[in-house]
């Protein structure tokens, strides 16, 4: 058992896993946080807007994947609209206190929609879009990602640049910007946290970049690095036996390193 798992209950950082109708990757996120020693809780956004729950009480916020409200409009748009309407100011305060806010898959789309990433210049403009995959298809496959920034949260476990196996499952995950200069800027700012890669790190074409993202972007952050949007699903590969091929023999799954990094970051603060 991990040393953090035996922290006394009261010292475990509380993590809010946000839900609304159609979010559906929350169970694996819940388990991942708990395995890494946090105290996750499901929070329905109705409970926040009705004032039953205060986000201030949490050490991190996680926005899971899924198809919030069916994604019939634009992926993540409705979830984002409801967050903007009910809790935007609280969310911004939460972020400025340097607590982690992580959105995966549909959660990434929500954060981009709200302008919380890349948030260059702090204006929360929606400048990055997650467009339909170039293949025009839903892509469920395992790919690899490499860390390509100096983000404090992940540097201890991911900074060696080694490609790490992760699953993706989405139809809209192609990172695009209204202006290529924006992408260059977030690249220069070190906001491209992870990029897709082939297994040996020597290149990256389809299907290793499953959606056609510019610069093979798999994850981006805000300038401070505590708001993170990523398309792949580390929460589905916590243990080695959830991985594929040779990585089934690794000591653990990519997800363990990912969630351990987040929990360590919270505890270090």
């Amino acid at each position: 058992m991990d040393s953090k798992s035996i922290l006394p209950e009261s010292d475990k950082p509380r993590v809010a896993i946000l839900r609304m109708e159609g979010t559906n990757n929350e169970d694996e996120a819940f388990h991942s946080f708990r395995r890494s020693g946090a105290e996750p809780e499901y929070v329905h956004i109705n409970e926040i807007s009705r004032g039953h729950i205060d986000l201030e009480d949490f050490s991190a916020i996680f926005i899971p994947g899924g198809f919030s409200a069916g994604d019939y409009v634009r992926a993540g748009a409705i979830f984002a609209a409801r967050l903007r309407f009910s809790v935007m100011d609280k969310l911004v305060r939460f972020i400025s206190s340097e607590k982690p806010v992580i959105g995966i898959c549909n959660g990434f789309q929500v954060l981009a929609e709200l302008g919380l990433i890349p948030d260059i210049g702090g204006r929360q403009d929606r400048v990055v879009t997650l467009a339909p995959n170039i293949s025009s298809r839903f892509e469920c496959r395992y790919v690899y990602i490499r860390m390509t920034s100096r983000n404090k949260m992940f540097s201890a476990r991911f900074s060696n640049g080694k490609p790490r196996q992760v699953p993706v499952a989405h139809a809209e995950g192609r990172v695009l910007a209204s202006d290529m200069k924006i992408i260059d800027a977030i690249d220069e700012n070190g906001q491209i946290l992870f990029r897709y890669s082939n297994p040996d790190g020597t290149g990256c074409g389809y299907p290793w970049n499953p959606n056609g993202s510019v610069k093979d972007i798999a994850a981006i952050t805000n300038p401070a690095g505590n708001v993170i949007g990523l398309m792949p699903h580390p929460e589905r590969v916590y243990y080695n036996f959830q991985m594929m091929g040779n990585e089934k023999n690794d000591p653990n799954g990519t997800g363990k390193d990912f969630f351990d990094s987040v929990v360590d970051f919270i505890l270090r603060k």
Binding site: E28, R141, Y144, P167, P199, E235, V237, M244, G245, N246
Partner: peptide, 23 residues
């Protein structure tokens, strides 16, 4: 067909409908 279906959601699919090296 298989890759259009999300076969990894919930994180509990240990043996997947496809097997070997990714892709």
């Amino acid at each position: 067909v298989i890759r259009q279906y999300d076969f990894t959601v919930r994180g509990n699919t240990i043996s997947k409908p496809l097997t070997g090296f990714p892709n």
